[in-house]
């Protein structure tokens, strides 16, 4: 082959085969990359406001248990995840409240309020938290988690902000 003068039929076929093959590879390859990384591109937590009911039914200075569940959809599967915690009204002021998660900060067991001791006790490793959620004894590395964002709607219902797992 001397320059562009003799571009034989055979060379033309080679170049065409290569070009069409390359085009098909790119046309298929690009969507396949998108197809494979798709779940990573869409992953992200969804937040929502959870209604915990009327605030005036909750006694002062007594932890009131609440639970709610969130359904997460992963592909074709739905999973319900349960959450729970305690609402503690410190005074008559409806905004003077503390909302604690009942999930022990040690290894994730559920703590219960034990009235006689005035403590939240975790049954798994005998951890104890006070009314403020501070660690009194046991292995937990930090106080109970709090739901810091809450609000009251016009009917006096308490809502907390769930930020996603």
């Amino acid at each position: 082959m001397s320059g562009m003068k003799h571009f034989s039929r055979r060379d033309f076929m080679k170049v065409t085969t290569g070009a069409v093959g390359g085009l098909v590879t790119v046309a298929l390859g690009a969507p396949i990359v998108g197809y494979l990384v798709d779940p990573a591109a869409k992953a992200g937590a969804k937040d929502s406001w959870i209604n915990l009911g009327p605030i005036d039914k909750i006694a002062i200075q007594t932890p009131q248990t609440f639970t709610f569940s969130i359904t997460t959809v992963n592909g074709w599967e739905r999973t319900g995840v349960n959450f729970g915690g305690f609402i503690i009204r410190k005074s008559e002021d409806p905004n003077d409240i503390l909302i604690l998660s009942s999930r022990c900060t040690h290894l994730g067991c559920t703590v219960s309020w034990i009235e006689e001791q005035g403590l939240f006790i975790c049954p798994c490793h005998d951890a104890a938290f006070d009314l403020e959620g501070q660690v009194m004894h046991g292995p937990p590395p930090r106080p109970l988690d709090r739901y810091d964002e809450f609000k009251l709607d016009e009917n006096g219902n308490l809502l907390i902000h769930y930020l996603g797992a």
């Binding site: 969507p31 197809y35 591109a41 592909g75």
Partner: peptide, 17 residues
């Protein structure tokens, strides 16, 4: 069935594959 619905409707280019 659900996984195929997922491929067809939710995954990018799933309908194409």
């Amino acid at each position: 069935y659900d996984s195929i619905q997922y491929i067809m409707n939710d995954v990018a280019f799933g309908w194409l594959i």
